[in-house]
């Protein structure tokens, strides 16, 4: 056996290095998996306690309109109707996405098709700055600017779905915009040139070709925006009014899932029904974020541009 033959058969420093590398990176990834599983497990088990330990009826929880977990209702059952918060959460989410989407697509189109060079150079930092502003600052401005304006215009306290929507609109705008830019940039250039070469105007090209080709990814962008809006806690909590009442219009104080959680989880005692009921709200938030995630995947799979 010659020297080289021996070397080929035996492990060397490099083989040992690679084992170390594998151990290091595999353990990091294992930590992440354990983390995600334990988040899912802990929130779920806490959130289910309301139904399993306290025997609250799931249907009543989801459709009941009275939220006062500390006290019992006429039938001697705890008042844990989460419907007002669910309705409010969905309202602010959908409304803010509806308002933000046209703006987001306009900004994205401006950056990709109307003024690609100067538009990108100028608007990219605008979007990054909007992302960078912390949510408490949005909340603070909502509280000091938006709420008083609404109060002066419509009366009442000013807090409510409208204020929440306005604040969330600005917060989800950059999320939707930057994803919409990616969506439009992913449309191959020859889609544009083919349409323009047929004599279509730029608007016709945008409307009939671009937006259609990019539709699945634009939808994904909007869903990401909605996910952010749905999960946002503090900014909304600061302007929504935090009264657990069924919203009758856009300007009465009400409460979202997140705002109820942040306001009260510190005021309840672990293991009691009021506390468990709040964890059930957290579970709804968790499940909704999984739903948004699945939606994005589903649309993404169906809508890949085949080219």
């Amino acid at each position: 056996m010659d020297d080289i033959q021996k070397k080929l058969a035996l492990p060397s420093k490099a083989s040992r290095e690679d084992i170390i590398g594998r151990i290091v990176s595999y353990s990091c990834i294992a930590a992440i998996i354990i983390l995600v599983i334990s988040i899912l497990y802990f929130i779920t088990s806490r959130g289910l306690a309301t139904f399993l330990t306290d025997h609250v009826n799931l249907w009543q929880f989801l459709t009941g309109k009275d939220w006062n977990p500390g006290s019992l209702n006429a039938q001697g059952k705890p008042q844990v109707g989460a419907l007002p918060m669910i309705v409010t959460s969905f309202s602010v989410t959908i409304l803010s996405a509806l308002v933000a989407t046209p703006f987001a697509i306009a900004v994205a189109l401006f950056m990709t098709d109307i003024a690609p060079k100067s538009g990108t150079k100028f608007l990219q930092p605008v979007i990054e700055l909007l992302v960078g502003i912390p949510s408490v600052v949005y909340g603070f401005i909502g509280l000091t600017v938006v709420v008083p304006v609404i109060r002066n215009l419509f009366g009442g306290t000013g807090a409510g779905i409208l204020a929440g929507t306005i604040v969330l609109f600005v917060m989800v705008l950059p999320t939707i915009t930057s994803l919409a830019v990616d969506a439009l940039r992913a449309v191959p250039a020859y889609f544009r040139s083919a349409s323009l070469a047929l004599g279509a105007t730029r608007f016709q090209t945008i409307y009939k070709v671009l937006l259609r080709a990019a539709m699945p990814r634009l939808l994904t962008a909007v869903i990401f925006g909605m996910a952010r809006a749905f999960g946002e806690a503090l900014a909304v909590q600061m302007v929504i009014g935090n009264a657990v009442l069924m919203p009758h219009n856009l300007i009465t104080p009400t409460s979202t899932l997140t705002s109820q959680l942040t306001t009260n989880i510190g005021n309840t005692i672990m293991g009691t029904l009021p506390n468990n009921a709040l964890w059930s709200l957290a579970l709804i938030l968790l499940l909704m974020s999984l739903v948004f995630n699945l939606l994005v995947r589903y649309i993404g799979k169906r809508g890949e541009i085949k080219s």
């Binding site: 080289i4 080929l8 058969a9 035996l10 492990p11 083989s15």
Partner: peptide, 12 residues
């Protein structure tokens, strides 16, 4: 040596 064998030290 058959260096295509998985047992062989590929770095060498």
């Amino acid at each position: 040596t058959n260096i295509n064998s998985p047992k062989v030290n590929v770095y060498e």
